[in-house]
């Protein structure tokens, strides 16, 4: 999305209208129409052979979205702010980078006296209540009507808050690209954050994400969340497997089914920058969800109390308003 003056004003008017109509535009995934069906993916990791076709397809199909940084990079202050430059290492495919939104993680070990080697395609899980989108102060990270969590590369400033608050630290930064270059590049921002957008443009045209389409083993499937979750549970029950992603972080739109428990896999996978864990993750917004009710009630209670106070003849305080 390029932002010019006309678009800026037009979207401002749309947004103003949207604020007024906000309660009616809020909807849940339960409503079904082509544009607002929340889609989820199921990954049967017992099938993955680590051929890398999904990784290659992801890079090919999404290559036009990858960063093209301007060099030299601006000098940033203070000096502790580091450049994140992957442009010379675009071939790296053993971790997540701004140029590699999907990679295959391998877990080797022993479970119930039997050795195992499992391969796990790792990318953004597209949370139902994504911390990256909820806490982005700039409106750059978003959740769309199909349950895709994305980052608007036209406005992202690369502060990496999304990465910090993501339990898996999925988004990756590239310096030297994006809106921050036009604002105060030395003092605020540091590029753009990149991650899987589940082939949003393809999905919008009714197509399947590239990683799913090319997989020769049929590891992944995609469909309405309720149906895919039911399939995942059925698969786990039928095979005596284990499910990950249904409740993690308050629920995601990606379900992994594994023949080995995820705590065992978590201990077996290599973890670190760009290499996410498989640990259990609770809902980080439990407090906020409770407090939201008080946020809605507070002004109403205040008004009622204020009116009652006035009705009783109070006149003080008027000088301070």
């Amino acid at each position: 999305m390029k932002i010019n003056r006309r678009h800026f004003l037009a979207s401002g008017l749309i947004a103003a209208g949207g604020i007024v109509a906000a309660p009616s535009t809020a909807r849940t995934g339960a409503e079904v129409s082509p544009d607002n069906v929340v889609l989820a993916t199921l990954l049967d990791i017992s099938k993955c052979i680590a051929c890398g076709a999904c990784v290659e397809a992801c890079r090919e199909v999404n290559g036009h979205k990858f960063p093209r940084p301007e060099k030299p990079f601006p000098i940033m202050y203070p000096a502790k702010v580091k450049v994140a430059d992957w442009s010379e290492r675009q071939d790296v495919d053993d971790r997540l980078t701004p140029y590699n939104w999907l990679y295959i993680q391998t877990a080797e070990g022993e479970y119930n006296g039997r050795s195992f080697e499992l391969h796990i395609p790792r990318r953004c899980l597209h949370c139902q209540n994504p911390p990256c989108a909820n806490l982005c102060p700039w409106g750059a990270a978003y959740k769309d009507s199909r349950g895709i969590v994305g980052i608007n590369d036209e406005i992202c400033l690369g502060g990496a808050k999304c990465k910090d608050v993501c339990p898996w630290h999925i988004p990756e930064r590239q310096t030297g690209v994006g809106l921050y270059l036009k604002l105060a590049p030395s003092f605020a921002g540091n590029g753009v954050m990149y991650k899987c957008d589940r082939c949003r443009d393809r999905v919008a045209q009714g197509e399947t994400p590239a990683c799913i389409e090319v997989c020769p083993e049929g590891v992944q499937s995609i469909g309405p969340r309720d149906e895919i979750l039911a399939q995942a549970r059925e698969l786990a029950a039928r095979t005596g497997g284990f499910l990950y992603g249904d409740t993690q972080n308050g629920g995601t739109n990606t379900f992994y089914v594994s023949p080995v428990p995820f705590d065992v896999l978590n201990a077996a996978v290599e973890q670190g920058p760009g290499k996410p864990h498989l640990a259990s993750v609770g809902n980080p917004f439990v407090k906020e969800e409770l407090l939201a009710r008080a946020v809605y009630a507070a002004p109403l209670i205040g008004v009622v109390a204020g009116v009652l106070h006035l009705v009783r003849g109070a006149t003080s305080e008027d000088n301070n308003e």
């Binding site: 749309i14 949207g18 535009t25 409106g139 978003y142 769309d144 009507s145 994305g150």
Partner: peptide
Amino acid sequence: YFSPTLVM
């Protein structure tokens, strides 16, 4: 759910 443009 609110549209990404509205959220921005």
